[in-house]
Amino acid sequence: MKKMLNLSSNPHIRDSVTTAEIMRDVVIAMIPTALYGIIQWGVNAALVVLLTVACAVLSEYAYEKFMKMQITIGDWSAAVTGLILALNCPPDIPVWIPCVGSVFAIIVIKMLYGGLGKNWMNPALGARCFLLISFAGKMTSFTPIGADAMSGATPLAYMKNGGDMANVNLMNLFLGRIPGTIGEVSKLCLLIGALYLIVKKVISPKIPCIYIGTVALFTLLFGGHGFDLYYLASEILGGGLIFGAFFMATDYVTSPITPNGQVVYAVILGIMTGLFRLFGGSAEGVSYAIILTNILVPVINLKTIPRAFGREGDK
């Protein structure tokens, strides 16, 4: 009886799921692709992953200790940030660079704005762009796998520079036998992780599907290859689109909460990614597209508030 008359402020719908469980699921979902990267590239990739995660967790702990706040490293969100950042780095990068990035992600992008739930930009991606601007050379030099026709350049860069499409092997793109960052190359492992998240209902497939669909449509319209499914598939599987769409665009904090807003968000993401990839200076544009669209999220939320039940029209 006492429980039934519980007076409280919103949210009124309660669930036993905690932040820690959700974040742990995200970490679990990224393990296949992280393992693939580590097996593929060896010790340095493993060090990057481990130290970046450690740095992220430690810097959150240190900041909260220093500011005499509640310690929140138990919610796994710092680990997720660190892991995403590590998976976004090239395998042969000097280990200290992603570590600097993860301190920046946690302290500047997340904690200074008030911690988890208050950051307006995806911390891992913000830090990645920070590193990309600071260490442009080191962040974009990728280790080739085997004797490949496209060795050294990612498939996206290869295609952007007008490389021969005959050298682009879709199977290699899908399985991850291509140069790229530690975690973005194996689409198979990424999709296994994404499936896990969808089955566990951690993410909804709505944003990723609309996002990828918009990129496909944009590439089809403006790619300059006509209706070429082979090229289209290479654009979607090459680079970090799958990784970004399922693991970064769906971040709870930095994506809209309204149903229509999520559609708008995903479409804008797709258009931005397409613009950056096809008309921008560099071959890949997923990171910039996501963090720039993150800025629009409050506006999108505001403009797409659903009509309350029982109310007519606007306001």
Binding site: V100, F130, I133, S134, F135, A136
Partner: peptide, 11 residues
């Protein structure tokens, strides 16, 4: 080799 280039840029 150990400098963070973004600091001389606008951000």
């Amino acid at each position: 080799d150990y400098t963070i280039g973004i600091f001389v840029l606008a951000p």
